[in-house]
């Protein structure tokens, strides 16, 4: 790992000031993705800003039909939170299926969304539930947040503070695990609620995306059969040593169907 300046601000305003300073800087949330990138030399920031000492960034609240999760809430805390389990069980399940116990004890929702890993789980929930991503500057709808491979709508130095998920009527996330990495080979989040039917796919393309053909199919008939009748194109899907683009294209409706059947 390269040498860097480490800042540990105690409030959001100081973090924002430091982040506005320019240069190659990275935030340190759980460190579960960024430290690996730094060891590989894929990132070599001059400065890191640790967000863990900022108060109020870990809070999890459920009120008025919205589950609001602070950016620094760890996956294990979301998975174990009784209010989240009750309001959106699919979200607690998703958090409880990320990586392994040790990763869930450190990794955060803000870090996961900001990272926009093509195979990450939370982006599917954000898109699949029509979440709102709150930053220190503005609110960004999930639909316009994920732009590409490790690319988001965040400006340089912009800090995610929390994420609001509207409580749906029913939802589920099913992940077909890459058994080596534990990330999603294909993961599908389905939901039905005030924003209609939403289907979000992760693991299959450069970043998470909504599958509109599956949304239409499920809006007509909420069944696995309706999903299985949808043909996904393999164009623009990822092909690698774990699975070809055609295999992923075939898997998406199958996993969406399993999620529809499991939704509660």
């Amino acid at each position: 790992m390269n040498a860097f300046e480490l800042h540990q601000p105690k409030d959001l305003a100081s973090a924002a000031t430091l982040a506005g300073g320019g240069g190659d800087l990275r935030f340190l949330a759980g460190g579960q993705s960024i430290l690996a990138s730094m060891k590989l030399g894929l990132a070599s920031p001059d400065a890191m800003i640790d967000l863990s000492l900022i108060p109020d960034m870990k809070a999890i609240t459920v009120a008025g039909g919205v589950v609001k999760i602070g950016a620094m809430a760890k996956h294990a805390d979301v998975a174990a939170n009784a209010d989240v389990k009750k309001a959106i069980p699919a979200l607690a399940d998703l958090a409880g299926g990320i990586g392994d116990r040790q990763v869930r004890n450190m990794g955060t929702i803000g870090g996961s969304l900001a990272n926009s890993d093509p195979a990450a789980c939370y982006p599917a929930a954000a898109l699949g539930l029509g979440a709102m991503i709150h930053t220190n500057k503005r609110n960004i709808a999930a639909d316009s947040f994920f732009l590409g491979l490790y690319e988001t709508a965040l400006d340089a130095g912009e800090i995610i503070t929390a994420v609001s998920f509207p409580v749906p009527e029913k939802a589920a996330y099913v992940k077909f695990k890459n058994s080596a990495s534990r990330f999603a080979l294909v993961g599908v989040f389905v939901s039905k609620g005030a924003q209609g039917v939403r289907v979000a796919v992760t693991g299959a393309a450069s970043c998470a995306f909504r599958a509109t053909a599956l949304e239409t199919a499920l809006a007509n008939s909420w069944t696995a059969a309706a999903c299985n009748a949808v043909k996904m194109s393999a164009d623009n899907l990822n092909g690698d040593l774990h699975a070809s683009a055609e295999y992923r294209a075939h898997l998406i409706p199958v996993i969406a169907g399993r999620a529809a059947a499991a939704a509660k």
């Binding site: 340190l28 460190g31 040790q102």
Partner: peptide
């Protein structure tokens, strides 16, 4: 809490 000590900074 169980964590992988190779994947965090001592400062954390």
């Amino acid at each position: 809490r169980a964590v992988k000590s190779c994947n965090m900074l001592v400062a954390q």
